[in-house]
């Protein structure tokens, strides 16, 4: 009968088993890790490819827009029609928003300013904040929601029902007729709508001041205007031109490229609003940095 197995043998077996298991576990982990790496690499490639494709598509479309905007036979009548639709039809909502912005801003800031005995600075504060920042951004976001989505849905439905193809096969340029005119109208109308909102915001501010404490209109107007400088107006107007371009361009791009059934029309409209809004915020952030660097540093 064999004697008991020596402890050294048992520990030796354990060491071997442990080594095998560790090795298996190591290789398992290694294979899993390499699988994960390959998966991540494939995914990264696909994402990169898709991003590059999107960038290429956008660049191509942008080039087409610029080419068609300098081409002979600019559609002036269609531009006027689009200015009417984009500018005049947005007039009520922009006016109301501008008025409420000025009114609320005044009512909100009046008590705090009063606590410091600085209520006479309220008109200036409202004027600067509305003209420099609040009105351009809020009007642009409203236009992104109203105009960009409208353009996206309109061109999307034209694309799905082959109206854009019909225009192209007739020998006319759909980009010149549909896209250039809409983008141009946005570039012209968004700054005008913002200027309107600025003026109405000051009026709303005056109404707020009247409710909160009272100040004569000439005094309010003088105080508001005296606090404004050239450097407040020009950058604000310039950035609204870019906002207008983005609103028109994004709407047109999304609509023009939606050609996979009626579902894509809704998707184009939705995507136009989201993309244009993001671009507006990004452009605003860049514009603030540039303005600060140019005027205040």
């Amino acid at each position: 009968m064999p004697g008991p197995i020596p402890n050294s043998h048992i520990s030796g077996v354990f060491v071997i088993v442990f080594a095998i298991l560790t090795k298996i576990s190591f290789w398992n982990n290694f294979y899993q890790f390499s699988d994960r790496l390959i998966y991540m690499k494939t995914k990264a490639f696909r994402t990169l490819k898709s991003v590059l494709y999107q960038v290429g598509e956008q660049a191509g479309f942008l080039g087409l827009v610029f080419k068609n905007s300098v081409k002979k036979g600019f559609e002036w009548n269609e531009l006027a029609h689009q200015c009417y639709l984009i500018g005049y039809k947005s007039f009520p909502i922009v006016t109301l928003t501008g008025f409420v912005l000025g009114f609320v801003l005044t009512l909100q800031s009046e008590p705090s300013m009063k606590a410091f005995g600085a209520e006479s600075l309220v008109p200036g504060m409202v004027a600067i904040s509305a003209i420099r920042e609040i009105c351009p951004v809020i009007v642009a976001l409203i236009c992104a929601g109203k105009i960009s989505s409208g353009i996206g849905a309109e061109l999307g439905s034209m694309s799905v029902t082959e109206q854009i193809d019909a225009m192209e096969v007739s020998g006319a340029s759909p980009v010149q007729y549909l896209v250039v005119t809409r983008i141009s109208a946005c570039i012209l109308m968004v700054p005008l709508l913002t200027s309107l909102a600025d003026a109405v915001a000051l009026l709303g501010g005056y109404m707020g001041t009247t409710i909160a404490g009272g100040m004569s209109f000439p005094l309010y107007f003088r105080k508001a205007m005296s606090s404004l400088a050239f450097s407040d107006l020009v950058p604000a107007v310039i950035k609204t031109i870019f906002f207008g371009f983005v609103i028109g361009y994004v709407g047109c791009f999304k609509g023009y490229h939606s050609n996979r059934g009626t579902e894509s029309v809704g998707r184009a409209a939705n995507s136009a609003v989201v993309t244009a809004s993001v671009w507006i915020i990004v452009i605003d952030a860049i514009a603030v940095q540039i303005t600060n660097a140019l005027y205040y540093n």
Binding site: T161, A166, V169, S170, G171
Partner: peptide
């Protein structure tokens, strides 16, 4: 020189029949 009649006719739905027909004449 080549006409194309689409399956759904593809009329420009924001224009009247007159404007639809005038489009290729004035633009092209």
């Amino acid at each position: 020189k080549t006409g194309f009649l689409f399956q759904g006719a593809a009329l420009y739905d924001s224009m009247t029949v007159r404007e639809n027909l005038a489009f290729p004449l004035t633009r092209v």
